[in-house]
Structures are given as C-alpha cells and as structure tokens.
Amino acid sequence: MVKKQKYVAYLRVSTKKQGYSGLGLEAQKEIILRHLQDKIPIAEFVEVESGRKTERPKLKEALKECRKTGATLIVAKLDRLARNVSFLSNLLESDTEIVFCDFPQANKMVLHILSAISQYEAELTATRTKQALEAKKLRGFKLGNPEHLMDKHEQAIQNSIRTIKEKADNNPNNKRAVAMLRTLTGKNATYQEMADFLNEQGFTTSRGCSFSKSTVYKLIRRYGL
C-alpha cells in the first residue's frame, strides 16, 4: 500500500490587523487547498510577522510538527516564508521537505537565487521610498496631500505608464525568469537556448505562457541583464 503524503500548512500575514481580519489568510488557504486538490493539511500554523524578520515561533512549531509526523511543509507563496537570504538558506538545509504552491518545480538552487533577488528588491524598495520622501520634502511638498498627485494630464499619463511597468516588474513569473536569466546570460547561451531551458524547468511568462527567444530578449533588455 502506498503511504499517503501528509502536509502541514504555514501561513503568514505582515500585520496584526491582517491577522485579526483574516485579510490575506483566506487567499493563502485557498491556494494551498487548490494545490493539494483532494488532500487536507493535518495541521495549520498562522504567523503574524514581517517577511524581513526571522523570529518565527509559529514556523518553528510547524517544522517541529513536520518532523514529528513525517509531513511536508506547504506554503502558498515563496514570499510568505522569507525575504532574508540567510534565514531561507538555513531553512532549506533542514531535514524538512518544503513545497511552494506558486512555484512547485523550484529546487534548492533556484530558491536560493530567488530569495537573494527578493531580499535585494525589498531593501532597494525601502531605500527608494525613503529617498523619494526626502526629495519631496526638499521640494516643498506636503506629504500625504493628494492635491499634487494628478494636477496635470501629462503627469496622469506618466503615472499610468509607471504603474503598468511596476506591475510587470513585480510579476512573480517575471521575477523567477529574470533570476535564472542572470545566471544563463553569464554562460553565453543563445536566446533560444535560454527559452528552451526556462520551458524545460517549468518557468512561464507573466501571462502563464511558454517562453520564446523574443520574450527572453525583451526581459534581458528590460532588466539590463
């Protein structure tokens, strides 16, 4: 008789408000249940903690349960686990199997690369936000006042273009592909070879399609690889 695989679910929200309201938790539960199809996790642990912090008592409890029951830890999204490279690296070296619903094909090498990119982007975003706020103060803007945001039609257009670009940059499929392309471009592979490799490893475009050499070329140009 084949032994049925057991799973322990780990869910994380960043604030107490989200934890009390259930905001974000239901979506994570739905992703996990959809991934498992007819299976139900034997236990569920909910953490209320920032992704950049490494004090995770509920995660420790979840891992302990996995070791005790021989279960696999299942997480809805990679960023629900950690944005800290050393933290995720130590976790991946543990004896517990981990499955990410948004990227089930990922092996340990890929996860290390993605966590490094995620940490870099989180730190870069924080720095840019701080610099932008300081620059606005120096120009005399009153922060939090919406009257400056849409005062010109041209500015509205630029805001729309910037939003579309940020949406593409933050797309998880694009992030994964770019993380791998950073490695592949250093090996002097052709665009077609890169596209074939990404497709073989289960990567998809921002719209969930297979890669072609033209989509690889566009990503390399967009991110300056």
Rank of each mutant, 00 (worst) to 15 (best):
R12N: 01
D38W: 04
K108N: 09
V75D: 07
R67A: 12
E97V: 05
L111E: 05
Q18N: 05
G208C: 11
T54W: 07
R162T: 13
L143I: 15
Q18P: 02
P172A: 02
A156I: 11
T127G: 00
S115Y: 00
Y217K: 14
A106M: 06
I31V: 12
S118L: 14
N188A: 07
G186W: 01
R67C: 10
P172E: 03
Q155Y: 07
C101G: 03
S206E: 08
N173R: 09
T204W: 02
Q119G: 02
T69G: 07
K77D: 09
N188K: 11
N199G: 00
Y7P: 01
Q158Y: 14
M109L: 11
F197Q: 05
T163S: 11
R139Q: 08
A179S: 14
Q192P: 03
Q5T: 14
E30T: 12
M1V: 15
P57F: 04
A156V: 02
V46H: 05
Q105N: 12
I161G: 04
S89T: 12
L25T: 12
E97K: 09
L124Q: 01
E26P: 01
L25M: 11
K58N: 10
G186T: 06
I157Q: 09
L184S: 10
S115M: 01
Q5L: 08
N145V: 02
T54K: 03
H153S: 13
L73I: 09
L73M: 08
E49P: 00
S118W: 02
V99G: 06
L92C: 00
H153V: 13
N170S: 11
A132M: 07
Y191S: 07
T54N: 00
I31N: 15
K58G: 00
Y10F: 09
S86K: 07
A82S: 14
Y191F: 15
F100W: 06
L88Y: 02
C66W: 01
S94G: 06
E97Q: 07
F211K: 05
T163G: 08
G144K: 04
T54D: 01
T72Q: 04
F87L: 01
K77E: 10
Q158I: 15
L111T: 03
K3S: 12
V178R: 13
D169N: 11
K187E: 12
A177W: 09
K17R: 14
V178H: 08
Q201N: 10
E123P: 01
C101V: 02
T129W: 06
C101P: 04
E200S: 09
V85C: 10
G186Q: 02
L91E: 04
K167T: 12
Y20R: 14
P104G: 08
A82M: 02
E121C: 07
A179C: 04
S212W: 14
V46G: 03
E193I: 13
Y10E: 00
S214V: 13
N84D: 15
T205N: 02
V13N: 03
P146K: 11
G70E: 09
C209L: 15
K60M: 09
P172G: 05
L114A: 04
K152T: 07
P104V: 14
C209R: 15
G51Y: 08
R67V: 15
L91P: 03
V178A: 05
